[in-house]
Computed example of a mutant assay.
Amino acid sequence: MLLPDQVGDRNRSGQYPVSITRSAIVQTLHAALEPNEAVFAVWLEGADAAERADECSDIDVWVDTDDGHEDDTIRAVEMALSNIGQIDFKHVRKGHPHPKIRQVFFHLAGTPSTSSLT
């Protein structure tokens, strides 16, 4: 488990650290979602799942949550991310072909422009 200053809490001047690592993002989301009883599973897809992730890869986080708790879970993800960095982009995909899949994209300031969280 990382200490708060290791995962990117704001410093005394209110600034975030210069570098936010993939590992810190994944660990932060794990810590935020693991105790949530409405969350059944959290896993990585995309380049991480294929073991091809590099410093410019996005992070495809999938969460299986109890029906009716999707909005709460998305808010928990957003709150966790905002604790380690400034969210400078958020996009909610509307009209996913599968009726039970919700997709939200986030980007944290100071991370590569190709790195987003989906």
Rank of each mutant, 00 (worst) to 15 (best):
M1A: 15
P4A: 07
P4E: 06
Q6R: 10
G8H: 04
D9S: 05
D9R: 03
R10M: 10
R10H: 08
R12S: 14
S13M: 08
S13G: 09
Q15P: 08
Y16G: 13
P17E: 03
R22T: 07
R22Y: 03
S23N: 07
I25Q: 07
V26K: 00
Q27E: 06
H30T: 08
A31C: 08
A31Y: 00
A32N: 00
A32L: 05
A32H: 02
L33D: 05
L33G: 03
E34C: 09
P35T: 00
N36V: 15
E37N: 12
E37F: 07
A38L: 05
A38Y: 01
A38C: 06
A38G: 09
V39F: 03
V39Y: 01
F40M: 11
A41S: 10
V42F: 06
V42E: 05
W43V: 07
A47R: 02
A47W: 01
D48K: 00
A50Q: 09
A50G: 09
A50E: 15
E51I: 08
R52H: 06
R52G: 08
A53F: 00
S57H: 02
S57L: 02
D58T: 09
I59E: 13
I59L: 14
I59Y: 01
D60Y: 03
D60N: 13
V61P: 07
V63W: 13
V63E: 14
D66F: 10
D67F: 14
D67Y: 13
H69T: 15
E70L: 11
D71I: 07
I74Q: 13
E78M: 07
M79E: 07
A80L: 09
L81N: 01
L81F: 02
L81S: 01
L81A: 09
S82C: 12
N83Q: 12
N83T: 10
N83Y: 06
Q86P: 13
F89T: 12
F89C: 12
K90C: 11
H91Q: 12
H91G: 14
H91P: 11
V92N: 15
K94E: 07
K94D: 06
G95H: 11
G95E: 04
H96G: 04
P97T: 05
P97W: 03
P99W: 02
I101W: 04
Q103R: 09
V104N: 00
V104K: 05
F105T: 15
F106D: 02
H107G: 01
H107R: 12
L108G: 13
L108E: 08
L108N: 09
L108D: 05
G110R: 04
G110C: 04
G110F: 00
T111Y: 00
T111E: 01
P112K: 06
T114R: 15
T114H: 04
T114Q: 12
S116C: 14
S116H: 08
L117Y: 02
